[in-house]
């Protein structure tokens, strides 16, 4: 079976991991926000802003890691805006999130036009190059897939481990998880719910922006409009799919990316008999199916989307 042979090729897995990387960053970011009790629908726009900020920094002469840092900062700033509106002011997280997405996206396109008024095709930068890990990268299939990627992909996997460690092993993680479950438990122990939630949203937004920057600085080498293309919304679903657990969410991201990489290869196999849109649809249809099967039993953070106001009767 040709269709199954694809699954054994190294290039398929290389692509799957590459496609997964931005999703991993952004999913961890969203997961941190939601664990603290804030649904961050600004994700799509924040990824767009991050994609532009990172790429533009390098285009303007900065080095690649400075670009990543600037993207993270830009994300944190939009996170600060989102958090200020939703946490101390207690506004609707849905409305604010959609607002932040629209604002961040438009502001990014506007800045792009201001900065590059005369450009017709987007300028290219020198992106991150694959960094083979000596020894490990020679293992068949697994080696190229996991150990011959760009540094940002390694960073994505590191982020998962770090998120899991912080959430489950540190005093700070306790406070974040409690803030999303029962904020009054946090306040009764003398911790500011506002500070925890705002911090979590800013940190999470920074990760989302780095996810966006991966696209312009590692997967591709320049910035296009519409390049985030719904990836942020997929990450929201991945958090649910992962039952708000970093490890499970990572598996979800890789699964989705594998579907995506697979459908591209199937398109080529089908020889144009089946309309290619059917294949494009496949990962999304499968995600919905997976959500139905997995997430029905998920226990979501109880205070998710519930604003906390101190001293309210």
């Amino acid at each position: 079976m040709e269709a199954l042979d694809i699954l054994l090729t190294a290039s398929f897995w290389v692509a799957a991991i590459r496609i997964a990387s931005p999703l991993i960053f952004a999913t961890m970011g969203e997961l941190i926000c939601e664990r603290a009790g804030v649904l961050n629908l600004g994700i799509e726009g924040i990824m767009t802003a991050g994609a532009f900020a990172g790429w533009f920094t390098v285009y303007a002469g900065g080095d690649l890691w400075t670009g990543v840092l600037v993207a993270a900062l830009a994300g944190a700033m939009f996170g600060l805006l989102h958090a200020t509106l939703t946490v101390p002011l207690g506004l609707s997280q849905h409305v604010v999130g959609i607002g932040v997405t629209l604002l961040a996206t438009s502001l990014t396109y506007f800045t792009y036009r201001l900065a590059l008024p005369e450009v017709t095709s987007p300028p290219k930068i020198e992106p991150f190059q694959p960094l083979p890990i000596p020894g490990l990268s020679d293992i068949p299939v697994v080696g190229p897939a996991l150990f011959n990627q760009t540094p940002l992909t390694y960073l994505a996997f590191l982020t998962v481990a770090l998120t899991a460690w912080v959430l489950y092993r540190t005093p700070l993680g306790l406070a974040i998880r409690a803030a999303g479950e029962n904020p009054s438990a946090v306040e009764a122990q003398g911790i500011s719910v506002t500070a925890i939630r705002m911090g979590a949203v800013m940190a999470g937004s920074a990760l989302m922006a780095v996810g966006g920057a991966f696209l312009t600085m590692s997967a591709f080498n320049s910035f296009f409009f519409e390049m985030i293309n719904g990836r942020g919304w997929i990450c929201i679903a991945l958090v649910v799919f992962g039952s708000w657990r970093p490890g499970k969410a990572l598996i979800g991201a890789i699964l989705f990316a594998a579907f995506d990489a697979y459908q591209v290869r199937l398109q080529q196999l089908s020889g144009g008999v089946v309309p290619y849109q059917i294949f494009l649809m496949m990962p999304y249809a499968l995600s919905i199916l997976a959500l139905i099967l997995v997430a029905r039993r998920a226990t979501y953070p109880k205070a998710l989307m519930v604003p906390y106001q101190k001293g309210e009767r």
Binding site: L174, R177, A178, E181, N182, S184, A185, V186, E187, A188, Q189, T299, P301, K302
Partner: peptide
Amino acid sequence: HQHFTLAENM
């Protein structure tokens, strides 16, 4: 507190 301040998932 009368209404306990505990996080149930922990």
